[in-house]
Simulated assay, not measured.
Amino acid sequence: MTSSIPAVDTPAGAESAPALEGVLLDMDGTLVDTEGLWWAAEAAIFAELGHVLDEADRAVVVGGPMTRSATYLIETTGAAITLDALIPLLNTRFTELIAGSVPLMPGARRLLTELTAHGVPTALVSASHRRIIDQILRSLGPEHFALTVAGDEVERTKPYPDPYLLAAAGLGADPRRCVVIEDTATGVAAAEAAGCPVLAVPSVAPIEPAPGRTVAPSLLQVDLAFLRTLIAPREQVGMPIP
């Protein structure tokens, strides 16, 4: 399944598609408009260390685990700070920036409300740490998620498949019947490694359609009927689905 969708109403074939067992959603840049705030936190901390971040580095660090992003920025700038010292600074500065409510991405509230109203098992899967997730959940609404997976709660976070495999298992669902919604290449790689069909809604850097991956311009074009069509019949995924 390779497609890019301009709009979604009620797609043909929704009734005949295999069952959707869960929806696994990334947080930053997918549901909440925070990718720019992460970059602002990183830029501010490194400015205090005497370094100016190159805008080109933003696409490299977006969507990745904190340790990878922080390590990359230290190595790129040559800043005199250790990884263990930098990570708490970044988390604290970001927490200050999201004090109060966090802006949601267009269409996020409507989609979460629809999934909840129809009883679709839903999980929040983020590379952000637990303290960040719990604060942002106040804006998203914790009632919309059966479970949440934080980046500091798994041994290997995105781009490894572990977070999405853990989320699917927590929902009691087959990963091949769970649609993942992501905004970055790192997150898409994690979801695809877990065997999940992917809906990419790019935020900072473009993502191309590919087999098993659909690209949408925003969540405004996405609804439950469309998500159900992304669960490919067994002959399309090349593996048996019981």
Rank of each mutant, 00 (worst) to 15 (best):
T77V: 14
T77H: 13
I81K: 11
L83V: 07
L83C: 06
I87Y: 02
I87M: 14
P88K: 05
L89P: 06
L90P: 00
T92E: 14
T92N: 09
R93V: 01
R93I: 01
F94N: 01
T95K: 01
T95F: 01
E96A: 12
E96S: 05
E96V: 02
L97K: 12
L97Q: 14
I98L: 01
I98C: 02
A99G: 12
A99W: 00
A99P: 00
G100I: 12
G100E: 15
V102D: 08
V102W: 01
P103G: 10
L104P: 13
L104D: 11
L104S: 10
M105A: 04
P106S: 09
P106G: 02
P106W: 02
G107A: 00
A108T: 10
A108F: 14
R109E: 15
L111K: 04
L111Y: 09
L111S: 10
L111H: 11
A117Q: 11
A117F: 03
H118D: 13
G119F: 04
G119S: 03
T122W: 13
L124P: 08
L124A: 10
V125F: 03
S126D: 04
S126F: 00
S128K: 14
S128M: 15
H129W: 13
R130N: 06
R130Y: 09
R131T: 12
I132Q: 10
I132H: 07
I132G: 05
I132T: 15
I133N: 14
I133S: 02
Q135P: 05
I136D: 09
I136F: 07
L137S: 08
R138G: 04
R138M: 00
S139A: 12
L140I: 07
P142A: 13
E143V: 04
E143F: 08
E143C: 03
H144K: 05
F145A: 13
F145L: 11
A146K: 03
L147P: 06
V149L: 04
V149Q: 02
A150R: 05
G151L: 01
G151I: 04
G151P: 00
D152C: 08
D152N: 14
D152V: 12
E153Y: 12
E155Q: 14
K158W: 08
K158P: 01
P159M: 15
P159L: 12
